[in-house]
Amino acid sequence: MKVPAPLVRLWHRLGSPRWFFETTAPWLPWLLGLGVVLLGAGAFWGLALAPADYLQGNSFRIIYVHVPAAILAQSCYMLMGTCGVVLLVWRMKLADMVLEAAAPIGASFTALALITGAVWGKPTWGTWWAWDARVTSMLILLFLYLGIIGLRQALARPEAAGRACAILAIVGLVNIPIIKYSVDWWLTLHQPSTFKLTEKPAMPPSMWIPLLLSVLGFYALFVWSVLQSTRVVVLERERRTAWVQNFVTEQGSKP
């Protein structure tokens, strides 16, 4: 298979944290702006314009933050698993830096999805917590995130921590579908499916367009946060290089 030349060039450039640091700097304001506009539009539409759900009333409006958070929680873990593979196979330093930066952000989105789900459950199911299949899988995902964060903090040497976290992220990624299917199967064995929240046959466009907007907005803000965080990790890890030291001196001479 022949890989197109520009992709190969991009791949080699990604091997340089400095290139990453300098290239992504101008992206940040655009990502932030895009995220704020998309999420703002989605949230306003969802909160004020979308019609109330015929069963759940206005509490369904939580969907516009709950579902994006849950989607991002899963996407972020996939990103980390991919970074783990890239780190172990190609030894790309940048992958480890993204792995470090993304973990707490993914954990925060997972916790957000769980908490908003619980708050949504109170008026809808009449209880804060139900052992619903999605809820349970999300809780286990949170534990997987906490494990990766804990492992990184426990291992003092960055290189050892990076590769160990990469292995753990890959093991987790392989296990996520297994966990998800086993939990799904177990809980459907036990409960009648009265607790299904999001399985509506069809949502009118006035409900799903804002959802799409806020999911896209969440993605933009997620990339914004991860890029920012990765850039700081780049500086910390590369602090012995001349370019970082020059950068620090430049920043220090600014008022």
Binding site: L146, L151, V171, N175, I179, V183
Partner: peptide, 18 residues
């Protein structure tokens, strides 16, 4: 590493338990 080990491993045990 005992507590961390539990945190790493127990979530992976869940499908077996189920």
């Amino acid at each position: 590493g005992g507590v961390l080990l539990a945190l790493l491993v127990l979530p992976l045990f869940i499908p077996v338990l189920i």
